[in-house]
Amino acid sequence: MTFDHFKINLLQPNESAAFFNLIDNNRSRLEDFFAGTVSKTLTLDDTINYCVEIQQRIQNKSYLPYIITDTITNTFVGIVDVKNIDLNVPKAELGYFIDSNYSRKGITSKAVELVLDDIIETYQFKKILCRIGSKNTSSIHVALKNGFELEGTIRKDYRTTKGEIVDLNYYGRVF
């Protein structure tokens, strides 16, 4: 998948260093809501091991991490990940983030649109869910722009790595 000067593809086994750099450059922004990824990528060696685990999860169709790459700089700039996949329904949860240097440029919204098109066609999902911190206006904007609707707010639903318990908005889109 491509648009402008960006490409989107599943994380490849040989991309551990680039993945580590993306997470490490955005660690402070990601630690609360991408806590699992952040904790498994503390060092390059940790990231290499985590990427091996990810490849198995891709094979099992239990996790699909789509990487956004700037083709001019050949740098990873974001991710749209598909997780909590339930092929019996079929449904999944979508998460996403963009490097701070690329935020507020519409890149995440376009990447989410393209990934949604791909996973709906490939996996025939009937529902996609996004769980977003109620104060994360940028992520909420991306969800709404991509046709998600607020299904509700679950109060005190998530503990951040700083220990704060926050409300999460649940956004859904049915196909």
Results as ranks from 00 to 15, higher is better:
1 M>I: 12
3 F>E: 10
6 F>V: 05
11 L>W: 10
14 N>A: 10
16 S>M: 05
17 A>E: 15
19 F>W: 12
20 F>A: 06
26 N>A: 06
27 R>P: 00
30 L>C: 02
31 E>Q: 13
31 E>V: 10
33 F>K: 02
34 F>K: 04
36 G>C: 01
36 G>F: 12
37 T>S: 04
41 T>E: 07
43 T>A: 05
43 T>I: 06
45 D>S: 13
47 T>K: 08
49 N>K: 14
49 N>A: 14
50 Y>H: 14
52 V>N: 13
52 V>C: 10
54 I>A: 07
54 I>N: 06
55 Q>N: 12
55 Q>L: 02
58 I>H: 08
60 N>P: 00
63 Y>C: 03
66 Y>M: 02
66 Y>G: 05
66 Y>E: 02
68 I>R: 05
69 T>G: 03
69 T>H: 01
69 T>M: 13
69 T>C: 09
69 T>L: 02
70 D>G: 11
75 T>Q: 15
79 I>M: 15
79 I>G: 00
80 V>W: 07
80 V>K: 04
81 D>A: 05
82 V>R: 08
85 I>E: 04
87 L>P: 01
89 V>K: 13
90 P>N: 06
90 P>C: 09
91 K>C: 11
92 A>V: 08
93 E>V: 11
93 E>C: 09
96 Y>Q: 09
97 F>C: 07
98 I>Q: 07
99 D>Y: 07
101 N>D: 14
102 Y>P: 05
103 S>A: 14
103 S>Q: 15
104 R>E: 14
105 K>S: 05
105 K>F: 02
106 G>P: 03
106 G>H: 04
108 T>I: 11
110 K>C: 06
112 V>S: 01
113 E>K: 13
113 E>Y: 13
117 D>C: 04
119 I>C: 03
122 T>G: 01
122 T>K: 15
123 Y>D: 06
124 Q>F: 06
124 Q>H: 14
126 K>M: 09
128 I>Q: 08
129 L>V: 15
130 C>Q: 11
130 C>M: 15
131 R>A: 12
134 S>H: 09
139 S>R: 01
142 V>D: 00
143 A>P: 04
144 L>N: 14
144 L>P: 02
150 L>I: 11
152 G>D: 06
154 I>M: 12
154 I>F: 14
155 R>I: 06
156 K>T: 08
156 K>F: 11
157 D>Y: 08
157 D>W: 03
162 K>C: 04
165 I>A: 01
165 I>W: 00
166 V>H: 03
167 D>L: 04
170 Y>F: 13
173 R>L: 11
174 V>K: 08
